[in-house]
Amino acid sequence: MTRRVAIFLSGGGSNMRALVEDMADDHPARPALVLSNNADAGGIAWARARGIATEVVDHRPHGADRAGFEAEIAARIATYGIDIICLAGFMRVLTAGFVTPWQGRMINIHPSLLPKYRGLNTHARAIAAGEREAGCTVHEVTPALDDGPILGQARVVVRPDDTPERLAARVLEQEHILYPMALRRFAAGETAPLYLP
């Protein structure tokens, strides 16, 4: 059975593109929807140009009403028969009210070697701490921020002259390799962690 995937993003969607391009081959899943909180997100235009269904749910009209924002997302995706949600640079924190019904069916990629450096500014924090390695993690989404069972990790050496921007660029290259591999395995029912060198 082919799993139907919704990909949530807020920006250019480079991880979404890597996922979609991987799903073009023999794959246990296919992209059914790309959703963004930003109508101007480059990822939305890219998906539309390839005939993938898109939805935009702007968070701004909801103000501090996160439950209302999430209820609108839930209503929009309900008609697509989604089996798996992939968060790919979706810059809104989802509450337990949204996450809990999807637990075990929602995954995320985070630019650090979790459990280190949850949240934002991961590369600057890793450099400031003198880390020798950084990387990225694909994990199942739980109500706790950047938590949940790890599905895969890829490591990147932190160089002595690294800036957050240089490190981020090298980590992003690994994200584009790791996330498609992790989704392919997850959609096939494989949840044992995958560790790339």
Results as ranks from 00 to 15, higher is better:
R3A: 06
H176S: 00
F186V: 04
H139S: 15
R166D: 04
D58A: 14
G148E: 00
A49G: 15
A96P: 09
P28S: 07
M23Q: 13
F8M: 02
A41H: 11
P101V: 00
K116S: 14
L172T: 00
R132D: 03
V99W: 03
R105K: 14
G130T: 09
P111G: 05
G81Q: 11
S10C: 04
G119E: 13
G119Q: 13
A29G: 06
G104L: 11
D162K: 10
A144C: 01
F90Y: 15
H59V: 04
A18S: 04
A169S: 05
P160R: 08
D65Y: 08
V158F: 12
P143D: 06
R66L: 06
N38F: 06
S14D: 05
L178S: 05
P164V: 01
I73L: 12
L196Q: 00
Q153M: 09
G12A: 09
S112W: 09
R92N: 10
M106G: 03
V156A: 13
L183F: 13
R66F: 02
P197F: 02
M1W: 05
R184C: 01
P111F: 05
G81T: 11
I177E: 10
G42W: 09
I77E: 15
E165S: 05
R184T: 01
H176Q: 11
H176I: 08
R159I: 03
I150N: 00
I84R: 11
V156C: 06
L120N: 11
R132A: 14
V57T: 12
I127F: 10
A144M: 13
H139M: 15
S10L: 07
M91W: 06
T54N: 10
L113E: 10
G68R: 13
V156W: 12
I85M: 13
I7D: 06
M1N: 02
S14Q: 09
H176Y: 12
T191Q: 06
C136H: 03
F69W: 14
E21H: 05
L194T: 04
I82A: 08
R48I: 08
V57D: 00
A24F: 14
H62S: 08
A169W: 06
E133F: 07
C136T: 14
A71G: 11
R30V: 06
F8P: 03
E173Q: 06
A182H: 02
R185Q: 02
A182Q: 01
A182P: 00
R125M: 09
P180C: 00
G43Q: 04
H123P: 00
A192P: 00
E140Q: 15
P31C: 14
L113W: 08
V138E: 02
C86S: 10
E140I: 12
R118Q: 15
R30L: 12
I44Q: 10
I127T: 07
A24D: 14
L114K: 04
L178Y: 10
R125C: 01
A128K: 15
W46N: 02
E55A: 12
H27N: 10
D162M: 05
R92L: 04
C86W: 11
A47M: 11
G130H: 09
W46I: 09
V20M: 14
R159N: 09
A24E: 15
A53C: 09
D40H: 14
I85F: 13
F69S: 12
P31M: 03
N121T: 02
I73A: 06
S36L: 08
G119L: 11
D83Q: 12
D58Q: 02
